[in-house]
């Protein structure tokens, strides 16, 4: 396929690809929290904050897109910083409930602060300044950073905290510090995805930032698996670009996503990446053996 061919293909499937990329960024954000053992369900709330900030700045003040997006991320980080200290004192279900209720507050405000958010009708006509290429660059950058961090001291600390918090603490890991960084990284990525989405979709409605969106982020992340940053991106791309035959069941999409969640959690707790990795290492072993065998002759 020539470059023109690829460009045409991208133009046809522009919106699907953009959705997949945005969802990938959000899922990557959620991945970081889950990796650190934080059941942080505030991703959609920060997505909404980022989207509304960028949208309002673009529509009301005619500010250029980069400034609006940066402001969305900055505001979310500011709020995230205020919230992070009390939230991180909580554990397990309590952390989930706290972050979930933060999401409910944000959605209720988006629905009811009519002067600012235009209520249930939403913001319409945000300039479409963000293209698939921008999203791709952002995603690759985010993926690269996550990849690097994963193999650093930070990533190992997250793994230790997730596996056994007390043991991690006993080994001298500053649990609070690493969880705080994970929470804020999730906040920043979700807000970034939200702000970019505002400039992709052109319309921001509060109903988009509800429970459904959250479950979608969970499905993406868990389907791919949290053993590698490739996991959530793979999950997001699979779910967002589900082949056409699935769209025949459009009205049962929710049930389908729910069923995937249940099956994955019970039977595939490490996600799709884990079996792929086993396959890869099995193939590698086999290949090595043959290679060695030939070398031996």
């Amino acid at each position: 396929m020539s470059f023109d061919g690829i460009a045409l293909w991208i133009r046809i499937y522009d919106h699907t690809i953009a959705t997949a990329l945005i969802n990938s960024i959000v899922s990557l954000g959620l991945y970081i929290s889950l990796r650190a053992g934080l059941f942080n369900l505030s991703v959609v709330a920060f997505q909404a904050l980022g989207a509304y900030t960028a949208g309002i700045l673009a529509l009301r003040l005619n500010l250029p897109t980069p400034i609006g997006v940066a402001a969305g991320v900055a505001l979310s980080l500011l709020i995230g910083t205020v919230l992070v200290f009390p939230i991180l004192r909580l554990k397990g279900h309590y952390l989930a409930i706290a972050t979930l209720s933060f999401g409910a507050i944000v959605q209720a405000l988006a629905l009811n602060l009519d002067d600012l958010t235009n209520g249930p009708a939403g913001l319409i006509g945000v300039p479409k300044t963000v293209t698939v290429w921008h999203l791709l660059v952002v995603l690759i950058a985010a993926l690269y950073c996550t990849w690097i961090v994963q193999f650093s001291r930070m990533g190992r600390a997250w793994d230790a905290i997730r596996t056994d918090e007390s043991a991690a603490r006993a080994m001298g890991i500053n649990v609070e510090h690493y969880r705080l960084v994970a929470f804020l990284a999730t906040t920043a990525l979700s807000a970034l995805a939200g702000a970019l989405w505002a400039h992709v979709n052109r319309v921001i409605v509060p109903s988009e930032f509800g429970f459904g969106q959250l479950t979608l982020a969970l499905v993406n992340t868990l389907l791919g698996g949290i053993s590698s940053p490739i996991g959530p991106v793979l999950g997001a791309i699979i779910v967002s670009t589900m082949p056409d035959w699935l769209y025949k069941f459009e009205q049962h999409r929710e049930a389908l996503i729910g069923a995937i969640l249940v099956v994955v959690v019970i039977y595939l707790p490490n996600g799709l990446v884990a079996p792929l990795r086993t396959l890869k290492s099995a193939l590698a072993r086999r290949f090595n053996r043959t290679a060695l065998g030939t070398a031996g002759k």
Binding site: T215, L222, A255, I257, G258, L261, V265, I266
Partner: peptide
Amino acid sequence: VASIGVSMI
């Protein structure tokens, strides 16, 4: 997460 999935179904 499983209960969220069941709920959606």
